[in-house]
């Protein structure tokens, strides 16, 4: 069953298109990573899915309903980010109580255990929490609510290393015990990579990739070696990134292409070049970097 279906989804603010003709669908009980650069439209997309904001055109269906103003979508989904606003009059303990009342699948026991594990005080107030603590508390609500659709928008903002690891571990464990559809948007692709099943990469409001994470790893490869040899090899290939890494040595990231005479890896290996796997996070950076600056930030400084 498809939990989310978007077709030609467009959202514009003052004629500026934040989301542009976005079409994709997300299956039930999967963990999807929503990745993209700052300003790619990740948060806007998630808010449209959660029914917070209205799309300008196109269609979005969550649980086969239009999400904006749908009570069923709201009741079966939760949107967690560091901006989640809680009334300042309520203590953390009371906020957990409210979540229990609103979400039918809410697991008070899990919430309490996480709450204690992360050292929260029931009498504390949400608006006085530090950034990392805020994110941690919001995450607890998000996990314990056990919503069929759980959306985490940059859930680890401000968390320290240990808490982040704990969070992903908790998320995975709870997901395995209680499968549901989870979307996580994150900058830290390396961290989430291990728990993701699918990746949806968007850039400037458009979809670039929507693949299982395993395929992402096989999507491109890095080739390093003598510049001339490398250039010759990648001549008619889809080059995502290239960079001089030393005297007469070039590193290039090329999309794998099984068509034609053997895979690019084999060709490279035959030519005596070094073939490396590309980290997903690097791949996403390469994919979302403007064509004119394929050399990355170095270009800014190289060609004065």
């Amino acid at each position: 069953m498809k939990v989310i279906e978007c077709s030609e989804l467009t959202k514009s603010y003052n004629r500026k298109k934040v989301l542009n003709q976005l079409s994709f669908s997300i299956e039930e009980n999967t963990i999807t990573g929503l990745v993209g650069r700052n300003g790619a439209g990740k948060t806007t997309l998630l808010k449209i899915i959660a029914g917070y904001i209205k799309n300008t055109s196109g269609e979005v269906r969550v649980f086969s309903e239009r999400s904006f103003n749908s009570l069923n979508v709201s009741g079966n989904s939760i949107f967690v980010d560091d901006q989640m606003s809680f009334p300042p009059a309520l203590q953390l303990g009371e906020l957990l109580g409210e979540a229990k009342r609103f979400y039918p699948n809410y697991d008070a026991n899990l919430a309490k255990r996480l709450f204690d594990y992360f050292g929260f005080d029931e009498k504390a107030y949400h608006n006085r929490l530090s950034k990392g603590k805020t994110s941690t508390f919001n995450m607890i609500i998000g996990l314990a609510s056990r919503c069929p659709l759980t959306i985490f928008d940059e859930p680890t903002t401000g968390m320290d290393e240990a808490v982040r690891k704990d969070f992903y571990r908790a998320l995975l464990k709870d997901y395995i015990a209680h499968p549901r559809t989870i979307i996580i948007s994150s900058h830290h692709v390396d961290e989430v990579e291990d728990i993701l099943e699918d990746v949806l990469l968007i850039n400037k409001g458009s979809k670039l990739l929507h693949l299982p994470i395993a395929e992402v790893k096989e999507w491109a490869c890095g080739i390093k070696g003598n510049s001339e040899t490398v250039l010759k090899l990648i001549n008619n290939k889809e080059v995502l990134y290239q960079k001089e890494v030393g005297m007469n040595t070039l590193y290039a990231v090329v999309r794998k292409d099984s068509s034609g005479s053997g895979s690019i890896e084999e060709q490279a290996q035959l030519a005596g070049l070094e073939v490396t796997a590309v980290r997903s996070s690097d791949l996403f950076v390469h994919l979302t970097t403007e064509a004119k600056s394929k050399g990355g930030i170095d270009d800014v400084f190289n060609n004065y």
Binding site: A89, E94, G97, K123
Partner: peptide, 8 residues
């Protein structure tokens, strides 16, 4: 039982 009694 259901709410924390506060000053208010």
């Amino acid at each position: 039982k259901y709410l924390t009694i506060k000053i208010t």
